[in-house]
């Protein structure tokens, strides 16, 4: 019975193999051509195969070589979720709320990810940064985004 000595690398190698297979699958309709006249599918397919081989090597290594002792990771799911979904929320809200409110919501939301967070600080920071970003990005660098969007009554330009 084979024993996996390094679980992290075992998973890592398997993910590399999966990535390789995914790219081969999604690129299945790309024409490979031949080595003289390579089609658009030749290079990606070659790389995907290489990635699968490397993934297999990592898995073999994980069975043979003992993992080094390392400190167990601490997981902070709340923080991950907030920090990762903040840009998504930013993308969804920007056109509707405008830059200033979006920025404010983003900052206050993300700040909650810290264990030292405190509401008063977050709100002040949010206000400060939304004013700064409006001045810098809509006035100075003239990004095509308005400070207040159509969802904000009275202030927003539709």
């Amino acid at each position: 019975m084979l024993k996996i000595r390094n679980g992290r690398d075992f998973v890592g190698g398997m993910s590399m193999i999966c990535i390789g297979l995914l790219f081969i699958w999604f690129g299945r309709e790309l024409e490979a051509g031949n080595s003289f006249q390579m089609g658009p599918g030749y290079f990606p397919r070659m790389l995907s195969l290489l990635l699968i081989v490397l993934g297999a090597l990592i898995m073999v290594q994980s069975i043979i070589v003992q993992a080094e002792e390392s400190e167990p990771d601490t997981w902070n799911w709340m923080a991950y979720a907030l920090v990762i979904f903040a840009p998504v929320g930013f993308g969804l809200l920007l056109a509707r709320l405008g830059l200033a409110p979006t920025m404010f919501v983003l900052i206050v939301g993300v700040a909650a990810a810290s264990r030292y967070a405190n509401w008063r600080h977050s709100i002040l920071l949010g206000l400060f940064l939304s004013v700064c970003s409006v001045l810098l990005f809509t006035r100075l660098l003239s990004l095509p985004v308005s400070a207040f969007g159509p969802w904000i009554p009275f202030l927003g330009n539709v």
């Binding site: 920090v83 903040a86 840009p87 930013f90 993308g91 920007l94 830059l99 920025m103 983003l106 900052i107 206050v108 993300v110 700040a111 990810a113 810290s114 264990r115 030292y116 967070a117 600080h121 977050s122 920071l125 949010g126 940064l129 970003s133 990005f137 990004l143 985004v145």
Partner: peptide, 16 residues
């Protein structure tokens, strides 16, 4: 805890 929200904010605007 005051710095990283600003970084996230600027990354978002930067990417946009």
């Amino acid at each position: 805890h005051l710095l990283f929200p600003a970084i996230v904010g600027f990354c978002c605007i930067g990417a946009y």
